[in-house]
Nucleic acid binder design. Structure first.
Lengths: 205, 205
DNA sequence: TGGATTATTAAACACTGTTTAATTACATTT
DNA sequence: AAATGTAATTAAACAGTGTTTAATAATCCA
């Protein structure tokens, strides 16, 4: 049936249009100030239509947040060329931080906001598989480091979490504007400086 | 004038009643789901009255968030008895993490949410002095550690930020439910385990 | 062309933060 | 004790929100 195929395509197309309208509005105004009516205006449909494509507002932002993980995973792909696991681990940190600084709103959505994760919790698949992929890559890299003799006496799982937490902490304090306590002439570069400091720590471990 | 004194007291009392109603509602329902009308209902006044005591909703939650910093600062006071700066630094981390785990909503308000900090930005005093006090204490402790020979080759300001970030990262990933990527049998204790791992790192630095 | 199905909308519901003008309460002065 | 002025308090409105419902428009199939 070619006709139902076309219908399927058209349906998918509108879904995509909703998503891209939501994304552009979200990036310029934030999640809270992007309303269903805003999105409907942008795509020139009535607000009600959106509920035929998404269960609720959270589901829209959960879909965007999935796209963010694809984006991040993509940036991580260059790491395959880095042989030394410790070097790869540091490169991973740099990529992670750069992604967060260049896409602060997307990072916020992926790792800070409660909205998309609430949707995960209330849906059938209770595992947060989007984040799981990148974390697993981190864990494997750290495993290689340990196998190579680094991080002696450390626990793989807890160390992975700690390392993730350190970079997440730095970028999230910055994104959520808690860095004003830092010495004013250091503020502009504090995230990069903090990361450097972290690399020094990892080297001496 | 005893009468205007009493009026002053009554005004202050109502302000306090608004604040405590806001706090209890906030702690059980979260900031977004606590409405001005909810607060007004609780204190048995009309919604409009609240605007004679607070400029807007953000100002209410900024006041609560200030209370949180007093609470945290208070818990930190036991640190005065710890002589060794490295031990004091670690004890500080423990207190910080415990505070966050025991008062997750208050921690969220203080270090994660954008609402109260938006109020700071839009008010006359653009410095975030509530957070500044505790951070300064961290900085001084680290300065002592460096003076004692610890953390050689590290920069005081950047290291302070990194250490804060590490603990903030761990608790905020937990509070915002991003820990589901962690091996399921490790999840319940992951924050404590991560902190232990961090202490090991600091010891070997 | 008629009937069934689907897509789309308008309208309503129950909320939200905030502002306005009107009202009540009360201390002070006549 | 009555009138006045001031401060506290409220009711009502405004413009917005997410979401659901029933009605309408468009489309496909027999």
């Amino acid at each position: 049936m070619g006709i139902s195929d076309r219908k399927e395509r058209e349906k998918e197309e509108l879904r995509e249009r909703i998503l891209s309208a939501a994304k552009s509005l979200f990036l310029e105004k934030g999640i809270e100030k992007t309303s269903i009516r805003n999105i409907a205006d942008q795509i020139e449909y009535s607000p009600g239509i959106i509920y035929h494509y998404f269960k609720d507002k959270n589901e829209i932002f959960h879909a965007l947040h999935q796209g963010g993980f694809r984006q991040l995973m993509d940036k991580m792909s260059v790491l395959a060329s880095v042989r030394n696991p410790l070097e790869r681990l540091k490169a991973m940190g740099s990529i992670y931080v750069r992604f967060a600084m260049e896409n602060p709103d997307m990072y916020d959505l992926m790792f800070i906001k409660e909205a998309p994760i609430d949707h995960v919790a209330s849906s059938e698949h209770d595992d947060w598989k989007e984040g799981g992929g990148t974390f697993n890559y981190l864990r494997l890299t750290i495993r290689e480091c340990i196998a190579q003799g680094n991080f002696q006496g450390h626990d793989e799982e807890a160390l992975s979490y700690l390392i993730w937490s350190a970079v997440h902490g730095m970028v999230s304090l910055h994104i959520r504007k808690r860095c004003e306590v830092i010495c004013s002439d250091r503020q502009t570069n504090i995230v990069a400086d903090g990361l450097e400091e972290f690399f020094k720590m990892l080297d001496r471990l």
